[in-house]
């Protein structure tokens, strides 16, 4: 099977170069101190910041994709979620609302939360809904930046269960987390980021 995601010489003025591979159904976990370049690495893969080098999705180079098409396949979920409308439902396609509602219930969000206003959400609710928004896109690759930082233990377990399901279905995950134990639970391969460089974790 072709490697799901591969980077080669991926770098910017602030971080890199990065050469990593993620197979289908696998997860690589990245830990490291704040400001080490973990988010920059994910942003570079998603092509949100200027960068050099190449990234392949299923063997196809990123340079052959239009940028929006690439980001639909390689979906980045930032630590700070962004909302462009007042109503939560406006952030989902109409045909995705049912799936989003089902995921919301599995993640322990109140029934009918999709009918609420964004301004009434707590930080943890925003975090879960932004992940749901990305999951409904059904992309082959997920780049997750601290997806459970605002959640309690039960919330963390629910998210990890859904991520395991997605991985079992072939989704490749790059997970940035401040919690080394979470990296051990989910990741097939672990790295630490320090001063803009990745090192394989012991």
């Amino acid at each position: 099977m072709v490697t799901a995601l591969r980077t080669q010489g991926l770098k910017s003025a602030l971080a890199g170069p990065f050469d990593v591979s993620v197979e289908h159904g696998c997860c690589i976990g990245i830990t490291g101190p704040s400001g080490a370049g973990k988010s920059l690495f994910l942003r570079m893969i998603a092509d949100l910041d200027p960068n050099e080098g190449e990234v392949w999705l299923d063997g196809k180079p990123r340079s052959g994709f239009a940028a929006p098409a690439w980001r639909r396949q390689v979906v980045y979920v930032p630590a700070e979620s962004g909302w462009w409308a007042d109503a939560i439902a406006a952030h989902f396609r109409k045909d995705q609302l049912g799936q989003a509602q089902a995921l919301a219930e599995r993640l322990g969000l109140p029934a009918g939360i999709l009918g609420e206003q964004v301004s009434r959400l707590s930080t943890g609710e925003r975090q879960r809904l932004s992940l749901i928004r990305a999951l409904t896109a059904a992309s082959p690759v997920l780049l997750l930046d601290e997806p459970t930082s605002a959640l309690d233990q039960a919330g963390v377990e629910r998210i990890e269960a859904i991520l395991r399901e997605r991985m079992a279905a072939g989704v490749a995950v790059v997970l940035v987390t401040h919690d080394p134990v979470q990296a051990m639970r989910l990741a097939d391969q672990r790295f630490t980021m320090a001063a803009g460089r990745l090192e394989a974790a012991a």
Binding site: A46, L48, P68, A69, R71, R72, V75, Y76, V77, P78, E80, S81, G82, W83, W84, H91, S130, R133, A134, A137
Partner: peptide, 15 residues
């Protein structure tokens, strides 16, 4: 000011 909102749309494949 609304950078997270703009980038949220970009990450989901908006132009």
């Amino acid at each position: 000011r609304e950078r997270p909102a703009v980038e949220a749309r970009l990450t989901l494949g908006a132009t």
